[in-house]
Design a binder for these strands. Structure first.
Length: 1031
RNA sequence: GGGCAGCUAGCUCAGUUGGUUAGAGCGCUACGUUCACACCGUAGAGGUCACAGGUUCGAAUCCUGUGCUGCCCACCA
């Protein structure tokens, strides 16, 4: 490499923008991220949790993808055949709602104006735009996904997998049709899932309504009173329920309360006593009536529905709690989840009174056509007029709202497709309990197991247009024989009776609808599948299933899934279920759940709150590496991450704390420079014209600073490489013998132990630990200590090359270890070293191959265990301690930094011998002249002393001594030491301690006491000395 | 209502099976820029480990309880 030109000197500051562009180009040119199935190589694979195509990536995505990339880059460097599968999610209702909203805002059109085909077309166009943006952001972040394999949950390959999986479920009888109360969004006119519903407290009322008993017999109650928050639903009532055994139920309620009282703290007992009184009162006042009603229910008696006059049965059902309300409850099976259960149990009619748009239908009789609100008002007025309204209470109600339209949700009974979970769930439960799928941290396994063990059927149909259309067709008026004939020999078609004379036909063949059976058309189900259905197939659908591809064979089951805890049930559990069902194998071996990022108030970040940080702002201002490093250091095991956010003034760079008040303002005036800037809320033209002030957080700065530190350490190394022949470093052996300086043995030892610790931390998903170790080692040990020590040797031609070799070895190893967290700066430096330091191979590199052309595919460090030398590390610690002691005295005495002081060190023979080679280093690092070192050294009269690790350091301060400062320092020191000694003495004097503590602990305490006493004696002498001089 | 987690320096967080004087980064104070780096260096100040009991020779760490914060699940005629 002699013919290499001397590299131009690097700029003082690392330019992340230029480096990021260069590195991405380099990686793309080499396609190092690409993984091709190959025999004989151990695979490591991760599928990305596909981001929704609804918008841009946020900080949570940045964290999630940084950690995946960290794992992937580490494994790739470790030699695994590494695949990171990228892609995006079509996100069903979320995407359709966004596009529909824009359509309404910008074109004043509804989806019905546009029609199914056109709307879906519009959404595809949206998807193309946002997918591109999201993938671009992932690249900006440095994600080393296999960009040749980008998938989308709705693309042809995934769609084929969805049809196949659904068809198999259908064929095995695991798909059922059933009524279900869905959360109906009357604005969007679609069902939304439970997790798209939020509850809000609103002021409402509790109406008590009297239902008259039909033909009451003597002694029977003439009416029953029920209470409701939604009086208009009585139009859909099909029964009134009473508990079948009120007395027993009251006994049970009383028993439960007594048990609760016994366990409750005193202050809650009074409240429970009131409840007990209430139960007693009911027993007195209501029980006789309830008993009669229960008997009447058994006899099949009826009550008259107010307003409509319809007779409805009294039914006996445990749902009616005698200890609550009047003890009776109206049953509206089509509009309340609990009533639906009762209706199912008791075989009641399900009377739907709503139209899809939220108005009442013909079943509501005279109220048909009214909105729910108007119907409620009218029903209440009519009840009052009819004398059926007993009383009205004020009450705060938790009302369900749609997250998409922000309008109230109506429970609405609809036919839905379900997947039966009873059989499917068990293998997925077993996989986790048996440890074949390991969830980290393991406490999250509980929510997975609890949820799955309920084995609730999965409602998979959605009344939407954007998604995988359910591959089921309906046909009527044909016989099974005709079906058999029509589909003879077709193993891609299956059918089942609809229990009403027709048939449901399921097929993987999209063109099935073009066929007719026996002259009758096949009508396709209009619904699409829950977006989580395609997500559940993601690990195998992306690898080509149901085809038996080489990718599937090589990379499935995948290695690790990295995700956040809120989708453990929605997504993780269903992937395990469907993975096992489709392939017979688990989808991944481990699941790592990472923390969530919260703002300074502990609230989750969201665009709608305006409290988020845009990762692109951080990438732009501080660099992708800064973002990645900060996020990695936050990925601790137990805690969510709180991130205080600031606005950065684009004019002067001043940081303004983001608060609940200012985070929703369209513009902010900088308190420092006075200039205004706009935020994400800006919409007025005047505001939009202002420069944008990004939301940032100081917490990313340490990452930026770390990049710069590495950069400047490199500058230093490169500046000192002139004339260095270079060549492989594989032959050097820092552990070999006396010729190797202490600091070199120390560095080698630290490189080996840090490599081990960092590797172990990453293996165990202790990412923050890995980041901290590397930061501390690179900064405090490599830069502050080792690099400083090398300065003297680099000036000495005889010792120069050894120092350069070790400097390169240290820098090289650090680069490799840091690369998975900070790929850009490390790659940029690697490229500079490639030109300047030539063929520089480490012992763990392949001796037969040239040095990697990209750090991305360089070998992960594996320093030999023999490099680890605890004795050297201890000895080096003593050296650093001595330097620190001299520096401290200098600082106390205000000795000018450039002035050299005379220092003598009294140290035991062995220590002195080991420190001897560090003579010059002590002098250079502490700006001292070391006059003597040995067991018999004594300080001069004007010396300040310090004791460190068995050595006494004497700093001659004849010219500088500030007696008062020294007296203050020593007095403090004496007091402190005395305090420790007292504590120790007390501990040792305790007979229990001596008797019960382990021998080793007692011995250690004694040794420490002796050391402290020694130190106290010396410090006290010194103090007395200074005091006498004062006089 | 059930469950989980957290409470450690001004802020954000570490603290490995209980064992010296509880650490880091940022911020703060003082000093320092011909020296790889001021996105820096040296030194310093700053903590009753939420609270109350208990176990132990010894508790930030283990147990019980309390308070506050956040999240998940269920439910609310």
């Amino acid at each position: 490499m002699d013919d290499q030109p001397t590299p131009p000197e690097l700029p003082k500051q690392y330019d992340h923008k230029a480096a990021q562009a260069r590195c991405r180009a380099l990686w793309d040119a080499g396609r190092y991220w690409h993984a091709e199935p190959a025999a004989g190589r151990v695979p490591f694979s991760i599928v990305i949790p596909p981001p929704n195509v609804t918008g841009a990536l946020h900080l949570g995505h940045a964290l999630n993808n940084t950690l995946q990339d960290l794992l992937v880059r580490t494994r790739r460097m470790q030699g695994f055949l590494t695949l990171w599968m990228p892609g995006t999610d079509h996100a069903g209702i979320a995407t359709q709602a966004v596009v529909e909203r824009r359509l309404l805002e910008e074109e004043k059109q509804s989806r019905h104006d546009l029609g199914r085909e056109n709307l879906v077309g519009r959404i595809w166009a949206w998807k193309e735009q946002y997918e591109k943006r999201i993938l671009g952001q992932l690249r900006d972040l440095g994600a080393s996904c296999d960009w040749d394999r980008v998938r989308f949950t709705l693309d042809d390959q995934c769609a084929a997998a969805v049809r196949e999986a659904f068809f198999r479920l259908f064929s095995k009888g695991l798909v059922r049709r059933g009524k279900r109360l869905v959360n109906w969004d009357t604005f969007l006119q679609t069902a939304v899932s439970d997790d798209e519903v939020f509850h809000e407290e609103v002021k409402g009322h509790f109406w008590h309504i009297r239902y008259d008993v039909i033909d009451p017999r003597p002694g029977e109650p003439e009416s029953v009173t029920v209470a409701t928050t939604r009086p208009e639903t009585l139009l859909g009532d099909t029964a009134v329920a009473v508990h079948p055994a009120p007395a027993a139920a009251l006994d049970a309620a009383e028993e439960a309360l007594r048990a609760k009282r016994a366990a409750a703290p005193a202050k809650e007992q009074a409240a429970i006593d009131r409840e007990l009184e209430d139960v007693a009162a009911r027993r007195r006042d209501l029980l006789a009536g309830l008993d009669r009603l229960a008997a009447m229910a058994r006899d099949g008696r009826e009550v008259r529905l107010p307003l409509l006059g319809r007779p409805i049965p009294l039914v006996a059902d445990e749902w009616a709690k005698p200890e609550m309300g009047s003890g009776c409850v109206k049953i509206t099976p089509a509009h309340d989840p609990n009533d639906y259960e009762v209706g199912t149990r008791r075989g009641l009619p399900m009377l739907n009174i709503l139209n899809p748009d939220g108005t009442l239908n013909a079943a509501a009789g005279p109220y048909a056509g009214l909105t729910i609100q108007k119907a409620r008002t009218k029903v209440v007025a009519d009840l009052e007029a009819a004398g059926q309204l007993v009383r009205v209470e004020d009450r705060v109600i938790e009302l369900a709202h749609s997250d998409r339209s922000k309008t109230p949700i109506e429970p609405y009974l609809a036919d839905q497709w379900f997947i039966r979970m009873d059989e499917l769930a068990q293998p997925a439960l077993d996989a986790v309990t048996a440890g074949r799928v390991r969830i980290v941290p393991d406490r999250y396994a509980r929510s997975y197991l609890d949820w799955l063990s309920e084995k609730r059927d999965w409602p998979v149909s959605r009344q939407l247009w954007w998604g995988h259309r359910i591959p089921i067709w309906h046909v009527e008026g044909v016989t099974e024989a005709e079906l058999e004939k029509a589909f003879a020999g077709r193993d891609t078609v299956a059918w089942r009776s609809d229990d009403g004379g027709g048939w449901f036909v399921c097929s993987t063949d999209e063109s099935l609808g073009l066929e007719a059976v026996g002259g009758r058309p096949l009508v396709r189900d209009p619904d699409v599948l829950d977006t989580w259905f395609s997500s559940a197939l993601w690990p195998h659908s992306t690898l080509g299933w149901p085809a038996r591809t080489a990718e599937l064979a090589a990379f499935y089951p995948t290695s690790t899934l990295v995700t956040s805890r809120d989708i453990i049930t929605l997504w993780v559990a269903r992937m395990v279920i469907m993975g096992i069902f489709d392939t017979g194998e688990i989808p991944f071996h481990e699941v790592y759940i990472h923390p969530k990022i919260l703002d300074r108030y502990g609230e989750t970040m969201s665009k709608s709150k305006g409290n988020g940080v845009d990762p692109l702002d951080v990438i732009d201002t501080l660099g992708a590496d800064a973002l990645r490093f900060a996020l990695t250091s936050m990925a601790t095991e137990t805690q969510d991450v709180r991130m205080p956010v600031e606005f950065q003034c684009p004019g002067c760079g001043h940081l303004i704390e983001q608060t609940v008040q200012n985070r929703v303002r369209p513009r902010i005036d900088c308190p420092k420079c006075g200039k205004p800037f706009r935020t994400q809320w800006a919409s007025a033209e005047a505001d939009l014209a202002l420069p944008r002030g990004p939301a940032v957080s100081e917490r990313f700065e340490s990452g930026r600073n770390f990049s710069n530190k590495l950069w400047n350490a490199t500058r230093f190394v490169l500046m000192n490489l002139e004339g260095f022949a270079g060549g492989p470093l594989g032959g050097f052996d820092p552990a070999a013998g006396a010729g190797v300086p202490l600091e070199d043995r120390w560095l080698a030892s630290r490189l080996a132990s840090v490599s081990r610790e960092v590797t172990a931390a990453i293996d165990q998903y202790r990412f923050a630990e890995a980041a901290r170790q590397l930061y501390a080692f690179a900064w405090d040990e490599f830069c502050s200590a080792y690099l400083e020590l090398c300065k003297a040797r680099l000036a000495d031609p005889a010792r120069r090359d050894q120092a350069r070799t070790m400097l390169l070895a240290g820098l090289d190893t650090i680069l490799r270890l840091v690369h998975p967290m900070m790929p850009f700066v490390t790659e940029e430096i690697w490229q500079h070293l490639r030109t300047a330091a030539g063929d520089r191979r480490m012992p763990w590199d392949d001796p037969a191959a040239p040095l990697a052309e990209s750090l991305m595919v360089a070998r992960w460090p594996q320093p030999p265990e023999a490099w680890i030398d605890p004795r050297t590390e201890t000895q080096f610690g003593t050296f650093l301690g001595v330097v620190g002691a001299i520096r401290e005295i200098r600082a106390r005495q205000n000795v000018p930094p450039k002035t050299r002081v005379a220092v003598a060190i009294r140290a035991p023979r062995e220590q002195a011998d080991l420190l001897a080679p560090m003579h010059a280093s002590i002098e250079s690092m502490a700006a001292a002249n070391l006059t003597a070192m040995g067991p018999d050294v004594a300080g001069t009269a004007a010396a300040a002393t310090a004791s460190v690790l068995g050595c006494d350091v004497f700093v001659d301060l004849a010219e500088f001594v500030d007696v008062d400062a020294e007296i203050v320092r020593l007095t403090k020191e004496v007091e402190k030491t005395e305090g420790f000694i007292r504590a120790k003495q007390a501990k040792l004097a305790d007979a229990n301690f001596a008797a019960r503590a382990p021998e080793a602990v007692v011995a250690k305490e004694r040794a420490q006491l002796a050391e402290l006493e020694d130190k106290l004696a010396k410090t006290a002498t010194s103090l007395a000395d200074f005091r006498s001089r004062k006089r």
